[in-house]
Design a protein around this nucleic acid. Structure first.
Lengths: 149, 149
DNA sequence: CTCATTTAGATGCAGTTGCATTCACATCAG
DNA sequence: CTGATGTGAATGCAACTGCATCTAAATGAG
């Protein structure tokens, strides 16, 4: 029972990622909608509701660098999809809030996004395989079991 | 037995991809080496040997847009890692060939790349799980079974 | 309180990407 | 041969990214 080659996982994972991503991005562009980076931010803001989110919180949720969030938020604000509100209690900070236009756009994007994803992923698997794959991918995200490092 | 949600696969896949990718890129940068896009191209050229490769062939292998290959090749050429040779038989084309320096760099990169990948992936799985995951990811790449579309 | 350190966020600059266009050669119909 | 169409590759421009740095406010030691 020899150690398996991590590239047997990485190579198909990377290719699958690239190919799914580009098909979804193409569908969004085709529909005249923004890209997935915008979607992810809009979605997090929608989840956060009236409380909004601080940029540094988004940074963790979206796995983006600090300046990435700063500029992404700039663009979304310029598009009217979010507002920056002063942060009571921390003069350095700000709170990002979704606007109605932002929510609207997110909803439109969702229709396209979910449909494209459905087409890109579902046909390849039986329900059992899909469940198993989701489970195994999940293991990549959790911290590794201590005894295997 | 209802249809599974493709996002149960996509979300962990995307997160795993981003997190593995950034840890590997960080390791390469840390070692003062170029990024994975350079590696991929160098590797393909190495596989191609003396025959070399046409840019449009790399385009397919690397899933890059035409201008992406054109510019990536520019940079690699400027670094001395490949040479462009006139293509006998097609006056529009060219043949890209790996140089000794390119091969050397690819080898150095491989040491770092494979080690980082090992650390990022292996600890999360038993050998059986790894095999199964590789197999399932492979299914995402092959054309979908006709009866499931 | 005062000064040093840390944290939230913005930004200038250089390098990279996406898009559309351009150029050059190839191919093919007539 | 001649012009129309197709294909391989480069490039100008605008948008985006990474990096390093910068400002302002918070925190914390003395």
């Amino acid at each position: 029972m020899q150690t398996p080659d991590p590239f047997d996982i990485w190579l198909p994972l990377a290719r699958a990622h690239k190919s799914i991503l580009s098909s979804v991005e193409a569908a969004l562009k085709q529909a005249g909608l923004p890209g997935l980076d915008w979607y992810d931010l809009l979605w997090e803001l929608e989840c956060a509701g009236d409380t909004g989110l601080r940029p540094f919180e988004l940074q963790e949720k979206l796995l983006l660098p600090q300046y990435g969030v700063s500029r992404l938020a700039d663009r979304l604000a310029k598009a009217g999809y979010l507002t920056r509100q002063e942060c009571s209690g921390d003069g350095r900070g700000q709170i990002l809030l979704l606007t109605a236009a932002g929510a609207e756009t997110r909803a439109q994007m969702w229709a396209v996004y979910s449909d494209a994803m459905q087409q890109a992923v579902t046909p390849h698997f039986s329900p059992g395989e899909a469940r198993r794959l989701a489970e195994l991918l999940g293991k990549l995200l959790r911290p590794a079991p201590a005894d295997k490092i």
